[in-house]
């Protein structure tokens, strides 16, 4: 049981950076960015290949982040320069990245068994061996990310990034090039996603081309669960809520696994969670219960 708890916490925290990335595009920037599946795998692939060939795991993780920044920038350029819709721009990058990731990996699967990863390094600094090593490292990174993201969103640049998602017309009238803001937001988001991919690959001790499939929906499910349970009244509360949502989401998966659901059914379950969350305002409306029911609330509401 303890192992299940440790495993859940570990998963939740290592995936939390990916969830923060999804939060940044879907919620703050109001941009339905589907690059995530590709940039997550890309982060894992870059880190795994560097570590596999004996590179420094910290630098490998940094390189993964750079890859994510680049992936987000490409999606942003497709949208801002060529006026491709947000949805399609992300899908195009994601699709292209699948081939790129296979090239980076050079094979279907790069194993990292007994490799020198950030997790083994971190564990070696701890006084005793602990099953919570990866969780602790994840926690430290997530706390740093939450603080950095919060402080950033409260800077002069961060505020106009928020406004770009909130009311684009208004912030353009205040002299802001909203294209730059979208590029910045997409790059940062996918940088975080790729970092998460790098950490997950090192923790599971392999990277393969399929590790990012369905990531965007898992990220959304975490965001929605976090918002529903922990609230989103203030910015800080909202950010912390989605991180907690990531942990709760992994706990739900662990629970249904214990109840006998096959791991291959996870994606269906995740999709159902998102559908239920998005459909509930409508259903409430049909039942005539929702007094101040906001009709037609969707992902970008």
């Amino acid at each position: 049981m303890l192992y299940v708890l440790a495993g859940t916490l570990e998963q939740g925290l290592l995936f939390a950076l990916m969830v923060l990335g999804v939060y940044l595009t879907f919620r703050v920037l109001d941009y339905a960015d589907l690059t995530v599946d590709g940039s997550f795998t890309m982060g894992g692939a870059i880190a795994a290949v560097i570590i596999f060939s004996g590179g420094n795991p910290w630098l490998a993780t940094l390189a993964a982040i750079c890859g994510g920044l680049l992936a987000g920038t490409i999606t942003g350029l497709l949208h801002t320069v060529f006026k491709i819709t947000p949805l399609l721009s992300g899908i195009l990058t994601m699709t292209g990245l699948y081939s790129v990731n296979l090239r980076i990996l050079g094979r279907a699967n790069v194993p990292l068994l007994r490799a020198d990863t950030v997790i083994t390094r971190f564990n070696s600094w701890l006084p005793t061996d602990s099953i919570y090593g990866a969780s602790l490292l994840g926690l430290i990174i997530v706390v740093l990310a939450v603080v950095a993201l919060y402080l950033f969103l409260k800077t002069e640049v961060g505020l106009v990034l928020q406004a770009t998602g909130d009311n684009e017309q208004m912030i353009r009238a205040q002299g802001v090039n909203t294209n730059h803001m979208k590029l910045l937001g997409l790059a940062l988001s996918n940088g975080m996603v790729a970092c998460s991919g790098a950490l997950v690959a090192q923790n599971q001790q392999f990277a393969d081309a399929g590790m990012g499939i369905g990531m965007i929906v898992a990220g959304l499910a975490s965001v929605i669960i976090g918002e529903a349970i922990f609230g989103k009244r203030t910015l800080l509360q909202h950010i912390i809520a989605v991180v907690c949502g990531s942990v709760v989401y992994r706990a739900v998966l662990a629970l249904v696994l214990r109840l006998g659901l096959a791991p291959t059914d996870f994606k269906l379950l995740t999709a159902l969670i998102v559908v239920v969350a998005l459909a509930s305002p409508q259903v409430k409306g049909w039942l005539g219960k929702g007094k101040n029911n906001r009709k037609g609330e969707t992902l970008d509401a």
């Binding site: 402080l151 950033f152 409260k154 800077t155 002069e156 640049v157 961060g158 505020l159 106009v160 406004a163 912030i171 205040q174 002299g175 802001v176």
Partner: peptide
């Protein structure tokens, strides 16, 4: 504060 910075350089400092 976003309007106050109209036409000014927007920096990475607490707004």
């Amino acid at each position: 504060v976003m309007a106050w910075k109209r036409g000014q350089r927007r920096r990475l400092r607490k707004a």
